[in-house]
Write a protein that binds this DNA or RNA. Structure first.
Lengths: 236, 236
DNA sequence: CGACCATTTGATATGGATCAAGCGATGTGG
DNA sequence: CCACATCGCTTGATCCATATCAAATGGTCG
C-alpha cells in the first residue's frame, strides 16, 4: 500500500529535511517554483529520499500524496500480465507527479537515480485549492499538461520507430534545455519501454540517425541534435 | 468463408437498434443524468443536430463549449501530416465530449451518424462549478474517466492485434450493455484507426477470433461475444 | 439488374522483434 | 596492476506479425 511506502520512507524524512533548503542544485530553479501551488509544496511539503530503483508508489495503491521532484529522475509505469512494461512518463527535477483523478494510482513510480522529492497530502492540497483559486488553477494547469502529454503519446505510438525516436529526442531536448546536447537520464531499456519498441530497435535507430547526420552520440547517454529540422520532419 | 448462423438473439438486436434513434431512450437515464452537472446541461443546454460525417468542432478551434450526446455516435480524432488518422474516442448517447483543459480543442469531432447533442458554454459551466461543489466534482469525475480511458489506450497500443481487437470488443460490450451482442456503430476503418491497425488486420483478426469460437460475426456490424473468458485472456 | 461501397480474403513485402554474438566501460578479487 | 566477471549497449542474422497491394464477395440503393 501507498501509506506503507510513504511511512517506510518517512523515517528518512527528517534527516533529509535540511537538505532541500540548503542544496539548491541548478536544476531546481524552474518556472513552476513561483506559482502559488509550488510555493505551498515548498513550504509544507515533507522531503523524502529514495535510492535508485526504489518504488515511490505502486499501481492500485491509494493516491493520498502528490510528489514534486527535487533532484534525480523518476519513471512511472504499468506492467502487463506477461511482463511487458509500458513507461508512462519520465519526471525531471521540478516536475510534479502522482497527480491522480481517482482514489488510486493507475501507475507505479520508481526512482531512476537517487531521488529527493517533496510530498504533500492530496487532501490538504484540494482543500487549499477550494480556498485559493490560484492554487486550483495551478493544479488544473498541471493536469492539462499531463493530459496533453498522454495524448501526444498516443499519436507517438502509431508512428514508425524513426518517428518515435525523433519525437522522443525533441521532447527531451525541450525539457532539458541545454542547447543542442541532451544528457539522457534513462537507459535504452527505459527509452524502449517508453516508445513501445525494443532496445535493439532504439539503438539501431539512433545509429541510423547518426549516419544521417541528424544527431551525434558521443556517449550512450549523451545525444547532440545536429539537424533539428530533419528531426522535426521525421516527427510527423 | 464462414457460415452465417440464423440462430441469433433477435431480442437483443432491436433493443440496440432503438438506442441510436430514440432521443428519449431509456438509456439516457444513466448515472450521469441524475448528477447536478447533467441536470444543468439538460436544463440550459442548447440542442443541436449534426448530419452524418459533419464536423462538430475542429482541432485547434477554441474550446468554448461542452457537448453531451443525446443520440447518434461521435468520434474524435487527430490527423497526422501524412494523412494517418488516430481516433481518440467513440462517444455514445449519454457521453460527454469536448472536455478540454487548455483553451483549444486538441482533437476534431465528427458525427458518425446523424447526431443530436446538447451544448453548454464552458464558461458558464466553470462558473457554476465555482459556486456548486457538486458540479465541480462531476466535472472532475468525467475528466478522471477520460484520462483513465486514454491511459488504457496507451497500454492497448503496445499489444498485439489480437489483444487490441479483444480489448476493443470487451470495451464496446461494456459500454453498450446488451448481453453478449454488440452492435458496432462504426466502420472497420474507424476501428482500425482507433486501434492503430489496418482494416485488413482488423477484419482478419475478427475472422480468426470467430474461427476460435470466441465470437460470432452474423453481420459486419454485429458481434456476439461467445467466449468472454477467452477474450479476457487475450486482453493481456 | 447494375453500380457502388464496405468488407473479406489472398499473395507478397517489410519493419521491427527475436535470437545471438561482440564490445567497451566499470567494478572486483587475487 | 591485471585477469575477469558483469552490465549496458551495439551489431548481425533471421523470423514473424502486420502492412501493403490486389482481387473477390456481399450488401445496399437507384
Amino acid at each position: 500500500m501507498l501509506t506503507q511506502t510513504a511511512i517506510r520512507s518517512a523515517a528518512a524524512v527528517s534527516s533529509i529535511r535540511q537538505f532541500n533548503h540548503a542544496s539548491a542544485s541548478p536544476h531546481q530553479a524552474s518556472v513552476a517554483d513561483v506559482s502559488p501551488l509550488a510555493q505551498h509544496i515548498q513550504l509544507s511539503g515533507a522531503a523524502m529520499s529514495f535510492p535508485r530503483n526504489a518504488e515511490i508508489f505502486g499501481e492500485n495503491e491509494s493516491a493520498d500524496y502528490l510528489y514534486k521532484l527535487i533532484s534525480g529522475t523518476v519513471r512511472t509505469y504499468k506492467i502487463l500480465s506477461d511482463g511487458r512494461r509500458q513507461i508512462g512518463g519520465f519526471y525531471l527535477p521540478g516536475d510534479v507527479f502522482g497527480l491522480e483523478f481517482g482514489d488510486e494510482h493507475t501507475q507505479s513510480a520508481e526512482a531512476m537515480s537517487d531521488a529527493k522529492v517533496l510530498v504533500v497530502k492530496r487532501s490538504t492540497l484540494t482543500a487549499l485549492a477550494g480556498r485559493d483559486a490560484a492554487v486550483a488553477r495551478d493544479l488544473y494547469a498541471l493536469t492539462a499538461r499531463e493530459l496533453q502529454r498522454v495524448q501526444n503519446r498516443i499519436l507517438l505510438l502509431i508512428k514508425t520507430a524513426q518517428e518515435r525516436v525523433a519525437s522522443f529526442l525533441l521532447e527531451m531536448a525541450e525539457r532539458v534545455p541545454c542547447g543542442d546536447a541532451v544528457e539522457l537520464p534513462m537507459s535504452r531499456q527505459d527509452i524502449a519501454d517508453y516508445l513501445g519498441l525494443t532496445i535493439e530497435t532504439v539503438s539501431r535507430t539512433l545509429t541510423s540517425l547518426e549516419s544521417a547526420a541528424a544527431i551525434e552520440v558521443p556517449t550512450s547517454r549523451r545525444i547532440v541534435l545536429r539537424n533539428r529540422p530533419e528531426l522535426n520532419r521525421l516527427n510527423g
